[in-house]
Amino acid sequence: MPQGFRPGADPLTKRSSRVVAVRKLARRKVRDERRQFLAEGPQAVAEALRRSGTVVELFASAPAAERYDELIDLAVADGVSVHEVTDDGLAALTETVTPQGLVAVCRYLDVDVPSSPRLVAVLDGISDPGNAGTILRAADATGADATVFPDATVDPYNGKCVRSSVGSLFHLPVVRGGDTATIVERLRADGLRVLAADAHGDTDLDDLIDAGSLVSPTAWLFGSEAHGLPEHVAALADARVKVPIYGHAESLNLATAATVCLYASARQHRRGAPQ
C-alpha cells in the first residue's frame, strides 16, 4: 500500500459519500460556497502542493500513488488527507477522458490587485475557459504581476481553465470579480498605461515596440475570441492596439494574440526603452 493511504481502508468509489461531496465542486455555486476547487493531474497537483496550505485533500488511484509517490509524501508532510480511489471514483472527480490518477481539492487563491504592478492582464467577457487558462499561463511565463478575471469573465477555478493554465494558476496573483471599469481605474491610479488588444485597433504593436512605448507599467485588456472587447470597455484604454499580420492568416486566436502582447511588454520591461 502506498504511503499516505490509511491501512485497512477500502478505496473510495463513485458512490462513497466523500467522492459524492467533492464532485459537486464541478459547479461554480458550490465552489463559491466552499471556496474550494479541483485540480487534476500530476502537474497541477505538484504546483498546488508547492504552495503550502493550498491543498485540502488528495485523491489518488493506487497506480498513480506508486508512480507519484513523492507527491503523496509531500501531501502527507503538509497535513493533507490522502484517499485511495477506484477507477470509477477517479472518473467521477475528473473531467478528462483519460484521468491521470490524481485529483486535489484546493483552497481559493484569489487576492486583491497587488500594489505597484508593472504588467497586468485583464480578461473581460472571455467565456472560453481554455483561452482564459492559456492567457493565464502566458501571463505567468512573461512575469506578469497579476491576471484579473472580472465578473463578466469565466471563473478561473473552472476545471478546463485550471487544466489549461498547466499549473500557472498557482504561480501568480489571480484577481477574481469586480467591474472592469473600476479595476482599470485602480490600475491607472497605480500609474499603469492601459492598452486594449483590438484586431481593428488604430495603433500597431510594432510601432509601440519601435518607439519604446511599452517600457512603462502596462495593463492589457483582452476580450472574447468571438466579439472582442465591448465598446464601453475598449473606450477605457489609452490606445487600441492591433497585432500585425505579415502573412495571409485572417487573424490570430485570442490566446496567441494575448501572448504576443504580453511578451512585447515583458521584453521592453526587461531591456528598457531603445536608445
Rank of each mutant, 00 (worst) to 15 (best):
Ile135His: 08
Ala139Ile: 04
Thr142Arg: 01
Ala144Cys: 15
Ala144Met: 05
Thr147Gly: 06
Val148Cys: 10
Val148Asn: 08
Phe149Met: 08
Pro156Lys: 10
Pro156Ser: 14
Asn158Ala: 13
Asn158Val: 09
Cys161Glu: 15
Val162Ile: 13
Arg163Asp: 14
Ser168Asn: 07
Ser168Trp: 06
Leu169Glu: 04
Pro173Asn: 03
Pro173Ala: 04
Val175Lys: 12
Val175Cys: 15
Asp179Leu: 04
Asp179Thr: 13
Thr180Cys: 07
Ala181Pro: 06
Ile183Val: 14
Leu187Cys: 13
Arg188Lys: 11
Arg188Gln: 15
Gly191Phe: 12
Arg193Val: 11
Val194Tyr: 04
Leu195Trp: 01
Leu195Met: 15
Ala196Cys: 08
Ala197Ser: 07
Ala197Pro: 01
Ala197Val: 00
Ala199Gly: 06
Gly201Thr: 11
Thr203Lys: 07
Asp204Ser: 13
Asp207Ser: 15
Asp207Glu: 15
Leu208Lys: 00
Asp210Gln: 12
Gly212Val: 04
Ser213Asp: 13
Val215Ile: 09
Ser216Gln: 11
Ala219Asn: 07
Ser224Cys: 02
Leu229Thr: 03
Glu231Ser: 12
Glu231Val: 03
Val233Pro: 02
Ala234Ile: 09
Ala235Phe: 05
Ala237Ile: 05
Asp238His: 09
Ala239Tyr: 04
Ala239Met: 01
Val241Cys: 09
Val241Asp: 08
Lys242Phe: 04
Val243Trp: 00
Glu250Ser: 14
Leu252His: 03
Leu252Glu: 05
Asn253Ala: 12
Ala258Phe: 12
Thr259Trp: 01
Leu262Thr: 05
Tyr263Gly: 02
Tyr263Val: 03
Ser265Phe: 08
Ser265Glu: 02
